[in-house]
Write a protein that binds this DNA or RNA. Sequence first.
DNA 1: TTCTATCGGTTCCGAAACGGAACCGACATG
DNA 2: CATGTCGGTTCCGTTTCGGAACCGATAGAA
Lengths: 166, 166
Amino acid sequence: MRWEELDRQPCSLARSLSIVGDRWTLLVLRECFLRVRRFEEFEQRLGIARHVLADRLKKLTDAGVLEKVPYQERPRREEYRLTEKGLDLYPVMLSLLDWGDKWMAEPEGPPVLRRHKACGHVVHAVHTCSECGEVLGARDMTVEIGPGAKGGELPPAATAEGNPSK
Amino acid sequence: MRWEELDRQPCSLARSLSIVGDRWTLLVLRECFLRVRRFEEFEQRLGIARHVLADRLKKLTDAGVLEKVPYQERPRREEYRLTEKGLDLYPVMLSLLDWGDKWMAEPEGPPVLRRHKACGHVVHAVHTCSECGEVLGARDMTVEIGPGAKGGELPPAATAEGNPSK
DNA sequence: TTCTATCGGTTCCGAAACGGAACCGACATG
DNA sequence: CATGTCGGTTCCGTTTCGGAACCGATAGAA
């Protein structure tokens, strides 16, 4: 499979990866969530090669995850901001973060703790069902053909998306 | 920054990416959640180059995300299975899946629907607070130094992990 | 006016990673 | 003993990456 074919596969995971399934892209997005917005600052904080950064920012902008907003004229300079589509990636970041906290941290614990403003506790995220509110585990769902399926049957990759009862 | 330095950074997101922040790795893991376990089957379903597949399976095994389990002797053959650490990546997959469903699907809708066995509804995942159960948004948390921090201060990347009040 | 600095890139080079195809080793089967 | 299966490894040509230099528009200082 070629990498460019990914965004045409009938699998939402593959399509997501066509945008964020890249070494640098998620680190760039981490900085975006930190409110880093300028080329220079991305470069300094990440130590990324400039042309790779330019390429990733362009791809993210083309994908509608970031948008260029002018912050000065003469000389015209633009900064990169998360769009709504980009902000919606927050759960992805949070999932990766929680997994890293649990499995990749030093013996003493994670480097950073997150405290929920509303309840005051140190927290992590729990995936729950959008309809009934129960915790969603890896084997709690069945899959079925969606309206965007091609050929009227589950794509080979489909069952991976919710795990079959098999 | 070199790629090998990622797993030593004081940032759980970076550390997670040192394992799953790769083009092919998450697609291999998608197949794992689909209960694909054998070299041949990964290769056929993904169309991945064999030596790249061998490399990814080795890295995932070394990282403790997969484990090799013999399924026959003479000739000895082994298959790859998700460990507990690997199964814990399910929220990551689900987040990417939901984002793809929302932002990358065809106009008609996503290719696959997931139905919650418990409540019977077509669902997506919602991130909620592990302590109070409320929905967690991108700006609902503050960050503070964790026990695994180095140097007694928030790493530069830290605030990205929960977003500062700034 | 020229000199230097800033910001957001682009260009170029050598090294690393990738796609594709061939090959290999340990067996089993016909 | 020829062929097939499975899980790799090796090799080669192309793509991508890291690192450094360069560029274009402009501002401010000398």
